[in-house]
Structures are given as structure tokens and as C-alpha cells.
Write a protein that binds this DNA or RNA. Structure first.
Length: 890
RNA sequence: GGGCGCUUAGCUCAGUGGUGGAGCGCCGCCCUUACAAGGCGGAGGUCGGAGGUUCGAGCCCUCCAGCGCCCACCA
């Protein structure tokens, strides 16, 4: 624990060969928290950066979707903090009206208690108790993943301040005429017995039946056939509608048909809403149970007969023989009775059609008239939101979401905000005995209009999303003008899944603009849903669920975070399996072990580079590649391309820094002079230390644990984001080092082709092209080490190649003397294979260069490159052919 | 009905008009003192199909097929 105390003792004496996340992560999180690194202070003099968390429901345990969402936020937030912003990540939880109420109802049911019988107050006490018990759990789970939220500002959508914000918002909308009450047809969930907004209804294709049945004209002079997928609703039919231009039915408009069960006379009306091409072209009208029919009914003065109870059983408004039946039983019964009466024309089954379902419980939604409901009029809200999305005040990542966003706003209809629940913000409207109605922020004692003390508050509560839409400013203290609100609003970024783009994001934008006059956030980052590697939803029954907390225990939070970031492309699905997390864990281990190597040779202290004039070719190559990595990571994170950033880091760290940089440095580290060792070590340390900082937002723990040992500061969390060094980009060095890489790879391949174990000492003699000579002189020791070569000779001029295998690398000739050892047959095969490749490529190149159009129209440099390539290929082919000849292979 | 996205190695996915990549999986060799949670090498692709633009197309355009998602008052 020494390193936790502040300045670490450098070195790796205490570093075990295997990284142990379990021993590291919780310790560091507690330490960061203790030091107050997560806390933000307004008006610190630094520029503000603020993210509000999409508040998890208090019903939930942390699942992998939360892990993804918050990992991405933490990456953004940690980077900004390192960049010097006054960074606030504001956490909180959501009361989640329906979801929570249902969970508690179920808990009560298990105890044999009916929640309705309990009464409103006692029930709410139970829910609050539930919240106290489980509401904090998810917070602990978020901490286990390393998320750097400012926990001192933790909010809950029903805490005192937010409750006040909800009331102020409601009253203002009410007084501005944007909230109204009306009796309209709404979406009703018969299981949760509440209304839902349009956005809370999920449409799913189901196999049902399409029943065509007959209404006889009241005077017996004919009939009219109608089709329906919900035949039970005919119990509430009060009319039949046809299209006004439909000549087949024009003579029937104005006449009446007789309802077979109720005896009611139903007028035939003409209405534009009818599609003459569907079914029979005539439609039964059930104003109480279908939105279109409701409107038709309104236009033609048809009665709305509500034949369903709140639980979707047949009500007393229907004929006695059907009363009390469940809606599905009624569907069968009505069909059966119609058949008995000979009125069924046909039944198409199965008939695929779309049916609305409750987004919470999955029950089929009934369009229903449930008495008075509250609505938000959206016409004056949606315009400004759309404008903000189009004029750039709001930016979407990926940008394509802007279309979905604006299109949704275009189609948006008034928002039903009243819920027939007990858990939630109660609607702040009171009614007095004399029928007066008023809204108030504070609980009133008397009627605002007549002073009567006999007042009653509206029994309904508000849609959960009504409070959620205020989240970016209510959490900062609104309606008070707090320091936090002044400093941090508008917030900087919102990171969320696309599934709540409409439900939540769009409404925050509308309300932010309305109440604050400003967008609630500048950037909207939309990510996909986590799926299993086969693209299936994670579910218990499939056994493919990944529990983030299990992963933290077995692989570490860093591994989970990296795997998620690595997968987080802009696509709608994010495949994740344990094998991805395994790979990420191995990466964390790689980081740890690269740290061990570098630290074992390093003196400690903030790494410093030797002066540029002393840089070796390897140094220049490594620094150039590191700068390329920096640029890629920095740009990717700037644009919220998390996957690109993670991949760039992985590739650089493993394939470049470790596989080549560290391996190439070993001769100097182990066998070089003291000066060489120090030099090599300080370059590696400099690159590693900076790379750790680049990686820290994604993998905070392992980077901190290694970084501490440099003794370069109190914590990587508060270390600055690396500054760019464009002058380190050195394409010439990369090209020259590339020759060494190619030479090493060719020798390795040769070794493998002949099955020569690393133990067998190889001598390699190279006749380089002029520009390659210095590379060999500078990198001789590195090349020997990397290619496991005992002796590397640089030739001055042509040498008799007899008895040697001959390789070709970028035009350089490479001889591997192995007289007597070489298996001639294998060598012949190797050469023949290579020759085929070279000849095929040369042929392709020749064809291209024979094309006059290519010569005329392609850029000169492309043509030149092609010429050089062909020349090299031809040279190599000739050499290969000559060798074959010598080997007598024919 | 409208809209969006996807189709590239066995799997999951990157890919900026100029010789097709990664991770995982597979085959082979190696316990080399950072790491066997590793190293090295290898196999494996007519880039969904058909046209078009271009000197040149995985990439740009059109059409087609399949898959996924969102929206919609398909009774």
C-alpha cells in the first residue's frame, strides 16, 4: 500500500508476473474518492465540463448495458478532467414510476397483501422503504466499475429539490397553456392499469385473425360486410364507415344497420379515413376502442360505448351474455355467436398484424377512454428542438441520428403525462367542490378561485419521463439559480442508448429550451445495445447474460471496460462475449508486464527524453509511431469513436511498442553500456508513461497501478492529458525501420520454412541498397536479437552465394550460408512458391503499365510507384530463377 | 406505408478510390530471465448479387436479394 500514500517508490520489486485486478481496483477507487478527485467546484477558473448520468432505475441491478453506457461516459469525463476542465459527472437514480410500483406490488403479493387494500399512503411508505433498501445498491455497483462520478451530488428524481422542479415546471406549462386536461382515447395497459404515452407503446407483429362479418341493414334490404382483427370490439360498435368516393357503398350512406346483439341501430357514414382498398372497403366504427374510430366518431357524432373495464374484461355496457369475460375469451365468444347467427363471411388466420404492447410489462395495449387525462401540448415545444438539432447547437454522434430525431419531432403528438399510479410525482392540480381547478407549486389550503377549503388533489401521478426531462438542470439546482446551474449548464455531453432517444433525449431538449432557453447539452452520443456474439439479446433463458459484477471479480473492471470500448462502434448492436473480455484481460496483463520490463530498467521520476540529436533510429521510429497513436486516439475520442481509440491503443501498445520497441531495446538494456541502458530506458519510459495516460480513461486501474511506479506525480487521474508532439512524426525513420522489420520477418519465415529451431545459430549476410546500409549499421544488434541471428554481416559488394540460401528484402540481397545443413528440396519448394507469387504480381503490374489510359490519367506518382515495383519484382524473379537453376530444381 | 442501418476471413467487426486488416478461433514450432494471460510463423477472402462511373471500385451511383432496427390511426 506504499504507493497509495502518494509518491511511490519506483521500481518493480513488488510487481508480480501476473496482474491482479482484484487486489488493485477497489484500493485505488477508495483512494481516488478519499482524495476528492471526483468532486467538482464551480467557478474554479477552469472551463466547465459537465455530464449528467442517464439515471438508472432504482429497481435495477447493474447490467452490462449500464456498464457500457457509463464506461463511455467515464472515458469522456476522465479525458476532460486530465485536459484541465472543471469536470462534473453528476450521478443519480430514477424513481421509474411503473417499474418500481410493479415490483413493490409483486413483493406485496408474495406476502399475500393486495396493494389497493393497503391504501395509498401505506403503499407509498413501502415503496420508499424499498428505495432505501435497494436504491443505493446500484451506486455501489457503479463504483466497482471505476466510474468517476461526483457522489457528493448524487440525486434522485423524487428527492426534495427535484420534486420542486417538477412542480415549478408543471405549473409554468399549465399557466402558459401548454398543459391541458381532456377526455380522449389513450393507450391503456390493462395489467398495470394505467395510461401510457405513445412512446411507451411498443408495436410488435403478432399472428392474429382477420374476421369479416356482416351487418344487416335495419330495413332488411341488404347488408354490409366489415373486417376486424379484434372482433370483440364490435360490442361497442356505433357505426359503419365507408369512403365518400366509394361507389359500391354510396347508396348506403345515411342508412342504418342493426347490431345483432344490442339491437342498436348503427348509421352508415362516409369518412375520408377509410381506405376503400382494404378488406371490404367498409369499416366498423368503435369510437371507444380505436383511435381512428374515435376520430370518425367525433366527426359524425357517434356515441362512444366503452365495453372494456380497466382490466380489459367486458364491461356492463355490453350485452349481459358477454359481461365479465376476459378480452381474449370475449373474442372467441363473439366470433362463435356471430357464426351461430350466420353472419361470419370469412376468417383469415393466421393474420399478421401490428399490436401495441406495454414497454414495461409487455401486455397488449388497449386504446381506451379512461376519463380525464393530462396532456402536454407539444406544438410550441417541438419547433425549437428541431431548430437546435439542425442549426448545430446540438450535435449528434453518429450524425445520422439527427434525421431520426427531427423526423420524430415532426410527427410528435400531444403527450399524455398522467398515470393512474401511486408511485411518482403527484399532479399538482387541485379541484374544489365548486368545480374550480388550479395548479400550485406549494400545497394549497384553499381553492385559488373561490377560497373553498374543500379541495382535493388530482389522484394521478406524472409520467416518469416528465421528471426525467428536467434532469440536466433540475440536478444542478433549478429552479434556484445555483452556482452549479450557472456554471455547468448547458452540460457538455449526453451519452445514451438509442432506445431512449425519443422517450428521454428529445424531451430534455424540448424542456431545456423551454425552461432554460438553452439546449441541455451540446453533444449527444448515441450508442447501441449490448448483444451476445450471435447478435441475440442477453437473457437468462439463453444463458448468455454477462453480469458486470462477476466480470469485475474474475477479470477486473479494466477488462470489461476495454472490451466494451473496443466494441463500441457506432452501430446499433454491440456484440460482447466472455472471449472479448478474456482478450481485454490479457491486454491489461500485457500493460502490466510491459511496465515491469521498463520499470526494471528505470531509475524513476517523470521520464524525460534525451536530446533529439542523440536519438537512435529505433528511438525515432518509436516516437513517431507513438505520436501517430496519440493523434489517432485523441482525434477518435474527440469524435466519440471509442472503438477506434481502443483499437489504436491496443495495436500500438502490443504490436509496436511491445513486440518491436521493447524487443529492439533489449540489446541495449541488457548488454549495452550504462549510458546506452539509461538512454534506451528513458525513451521507453517516456513513451510508456504517456501511453498509460492515453489509456487511462479506458483502463483507469492498471494504468494507475503502473504509472505510480514512475514516481511522476500523485495520480494518473490528475495528470495532464499528453500534449501533442507533431515534430516526432518521422516518416523517414519509419520507412528505414520498416526495412529492418521486413528483414527480420523474412529471416524468421526462412527459419520456419526450414524448421530451424532458434537454437540453430544463423549467420546472415546482407548486401543492402545504398540507402539501406545505414539502417543495418545502426540496427545491427536489434536485428540480430529480433531475428535470433548469431551474426549479421553487412556486405560491401557481391559475394559468391554458393552454398547459401538467398532471400530478397526490399531489393537487398540476403544470404544465409547453410552449406550442408540446408534441405535442398525444402529450399526449392520455398523458392518456387515465392517465384510464383512474384511472377503473378509482376504480370499484374505489367498489364497495368501497358494500359495507356492508366499512364495518361493516373497521377504521376502512382505510375512511378508502379514502375519501381515492377522493376523490383523482375529483379527478384530473375534472382529466384537463377537460384532454382543452381539448385537443379528445374 | 415511410425512414435508417447492415451484408468483408470459421465467428464478431474495422476499412480514407491506388497490392484487402484486427480480435477471437484454427494449424505448426518454441516454457527465450516483462508477460505460456506469452513469443514466432502459417493457413484461411471472386469484399451479398447485377449493372454503371473511373486509368483504377470493398469504398462513389443505380437496381436486386437477404438481415436488423425505428416510425405510422395496415381496420
Amino acid at each position: 500500500m506504499r504507493e497509495v500514500e502518494g509518491r511511490a517508490a519506483p521500481g518493480r520489486a513488488d510487481m508480480s508476473p501476473a496482474y491482479d485486478p482484484l487486489a488493485t481496483e477497489a484500493r485505488w477507487y477508495a483512494e481516488w474518492e478519499r482524495r476528492g478527485y471526483f468532486g467538482a467546484r464551480p467557478n474554479s477558473g477552469r472551463p466547465p465540463f459537465c455530464v449528467v448520468i442517464p439515471p438508472p432505475n432504482i429497481t435495477g441491478r447493474l447490467h452490462v448495458g449500464h456498464a457500457l453506457n457509463n464506461t463511455l461516459q467515464d472515458i469522456v469525463v476522465r479525458r476532460r478532467r486530465m485536459q484541465g476542465y472543471e469536470t462534473l459527472w453528476l450521478p443519480g437514480t430514477d424513481h421509474a414510476g411503473i417499474a418500481t410500483q410493479v415490483v413493490v406490488q409483486r413483493e406485496l403479493a408474495r406476502e399475500g397483501v393486495d396493494w389497493r387494500a393497503l391504501g395509498r399512503e401505506a403503499f407509498l411508505e413501502r415503496v420508499w422503504a424499498w428505495k432505501e433498501r435497494y436504491g443505493g445498491e446500484i451506486v455501489e455497483q457503479l463504483k466497482a466499475l471505476g466510474f468517476s462520478c461526483d457522489w457528493s451530488r448524487l440525486r434522485f428524481t423524487m428527492d426534495e429539490g427535484l420534486a420542486r422542479a417538477v412542480r415549478v415546471a408543471f405549473v409554468r406549462l399549465y399557466e402558459d397553456g401548454l398543459i391541458y386536461r381532456g377526455e380522449r382515447i389513450i393507450n391503456w395497459c390493462p395489467r398495470d392499469t394505467t395510461a401510457l404515452s405513445d412512446s411507451e407503446v411498443e408495436h410488435r407483429e403478432v399472428e392474429g385473425e382477420l374476421v369479416t362479418f356482416r351487418y344487416e341493414l335495419a330495413d332488411g334490404s341488404g347488408h354490409i360486410d366489415v373486417a376486424t382483427t379484434r372482433v370483440e370490439t364490435m360490442l361497442g360498435d356505433t357505426g359503419v364507415a365507408v369512403h365518400p368516393d366509394d361507389s359500391r357503398y354510396r347508396h348506403l350512406v345515411g342508412r342504418r344497420v342493426r347490431h345483432p346483439f344490442t339491437g342498436r341501430l348503427l348509421p352508415v357514414v362516409a369518412d375520408e379515413a377509410v381506405d376503400p382498398d382494404f378488406g371490404t372497403g367498409a369499416v366498423k366504427v368503435t369510437p371507444a376502442h380505436d383511435p381512428t374510430d374515435f376520430e370518425i366518431g367525433q366527426r359524425h357524432g357517434l356515441e362512444a360505448v366503452n365495453i372494456l373495464t380497466a382490466e380489459a374484461t367486458i364491461s356492463d355496457a355490453a350485452p349481459e351474455e358477454f359481461r365479465g369475460l376476459d378480452r381474449y375469451a370475449a373474442r372467441k365468444r363473439v366470433l362463435h355467436r356471430l357464426e351461430e347467427l350466420g353472419l361470419v363471411v370469412k376468417v383469415e388466420r393466421p393474420y399478421l398484424h401490428s399490436v401495441g404492447h406495454c414497454y414495461r410489462c409487455g401486455a397488449e395495449i388497449e386504446p381506451w377512454i379512461s376519463g380525464q387525462q393530462w396532456f402536454v401540448a407539444v406544438d410550441r415545444l417541438k419547433g425549437p428542438a428541431k431548430e437546435a438539432a439542425l442549426d448545430g447547437r446540438l450535435s449528434f454522434f453518429p450524425a445520422r441520428w439527427v434525421h431520426a430525431f427531427t423526423q420524430w419531432l415532426d410527427d410528435l403528438r400531444d403527450w399524455n403525462i398522467s398515470r393512474q399510479l401511486w408511485w411518482g410525482h403527484r399532479i399538482p392540480v387541485w379541484y374544489c367542490r365548486d368545480g374550480h381547478e388550479f395548479a400550485a407549486v406549494e400545497d394549497p389550503e384553499a381553492c385559488r378561485v373561490c377560497g373553498s377549503r374543500e379541495i382535493e388533489q388530482d389522484p394521478d401521478v406524472l409520467d416518469t419521463w416528465f421528471s426525467s426531462q428536467l434532469w440536466p438542470f433540475s440536478t444542478l439546482g433549478w429552479p434556484e439559480r445555483t452556482e452549479d446551474l450557472e456554471f455547468f449548464y448547458p452540460t457538455s455531453v449526453l451519452v445514451t442508448g438509442y432506445e431512449i432517444l425519443y422517450l428521454w433525449v428529445a424531451r430534455m431538449v424540448m424542456s431545456g429550451l423551454y425552461f432554460m432557453g438553452e439546449v441541455p447539452f451540446r453533444d449527444v452520443v448515441i450508442h447501441g445495445l449490448v448483444r451476445d456474439p450471435q447478435g441475440r439479446k442477453m437473457s437468462k433463458s439463453l444463458g448468455n447474460v454477462i453480469d458486470p459484477l462477476d466480470v469485475v471479480r474474475t477479470h477486473g473492471a479494466d477488462a470489461l471496460r476495454f472490451a466494451l470500448a473496443r466494441q463500441a462502434t457506432g452501430s446499433q448492436e454491440i456484440p460482447l462475449g466472455m472471449e472479448y473480455i478474456e482478450a481485454a484481460r490479457r491486454f491489461a496483463n500485457k500493460v502490466w508486464n510491459a511496465g515491469r520490463l521498463v520499470l526494471s530498467t528505470y531509475e524513476g521520476g517523470a521520464p524525460e527524453l534525451p536530446p533529439p540529436e542523440r536519438w537512435t533510429l529505433t528511438d525515432r521510429w518509436l516516437l513517431s509511431r507513438h505520436q501517430a497513436c496519440f493523434e489517432e486516439v485523441d482525434r477518435a475520442l474527440e469524435e466519440y469513436r471509442f472503438s477506434d481509440a481502443a483499437q489504436a491503443l491496443h495495436r500500438f501498445f502490443w504490436s509496436e511498442f511491445a513486440d518491436w520497441g521493447l524487443e529492439a531495446a533489449k540489446p541495449r538494456l541488457y548488454e549495452g553500456s550504462e549510458g546506452e541502458r539509461r538512454h534506451a530506458s528513458s525513451v521507453l519510459a517516456w513513451v510508456l508513461e504517456r501511453t498509460l495516460r492515453l489509456l487511462h480513461p479506458i483502463m483507469p486501474f492498471v494504468t494507475e497501478e503502473v504509472w505510480q511506479r514512475f514516481g511522476a506525480g500523485p495520480s494518473i487521474m490528475v495528470a495532464p492529458w499528453p500534449e501533442p508532439h507533431p515534430e516526432h512524426r518521422d516518416l523517414e525513420a519509419e520507412a528505414r525501420f520498416g526495412f529492418a522489420e521486413a528483414l527480420v520477418a523474412e529471416v524468421r519465415r526462412f527459419r520456419k520454412a526450414h524448421g530451424l529451431a532458434d537454437r540453430v545459430p544463423l549467420t546472415v549476410r546482407v548486401l543492402p541498397l545504398d540507402h539501406q546500409r545505414s539502417v543495418l549499421l545502426e540496427l545491427g544488434a536489434e536485428i540480430q536479437r529480433l531475428a535470433t541471428v548469431a551474426s549479421l554481416e553487412v556486405l560491401e559488394g557481391p559475394v559468391d552465394p554458393a552454398g547459401s540460401a538467398r532471400l530478397s528484402v526490399d531489393g537487398a540481397q540476403v544470404l544465409v550460408p547453410l552449406a550442408g545443413v540446408l534441405d535442398v528440396e525444402v529450399e526449392r519448394a520455398r523458392i518456387r512458391r515465392r517465384l510464383e507469387e512474384v511472377e503473378a504480381e509482376a504480370a499484374r503490374s505489367e498489364r497495368k503499365l501497358a494500359n495507356e489510359q492508366f499512364l495518361a490519367r493516373a497521377p504521376a506518382e502512382v505510375v512511378e510507384r508502379e514502375r519501381e515495383k515492377l522493376a523490383a519484382l523482375k529483379e527478384e524473379a530473375a534472382a529466384l530463377a537463377a537460384q532454382l537453376e543452381e539448385l537443379g530444381g528445374g
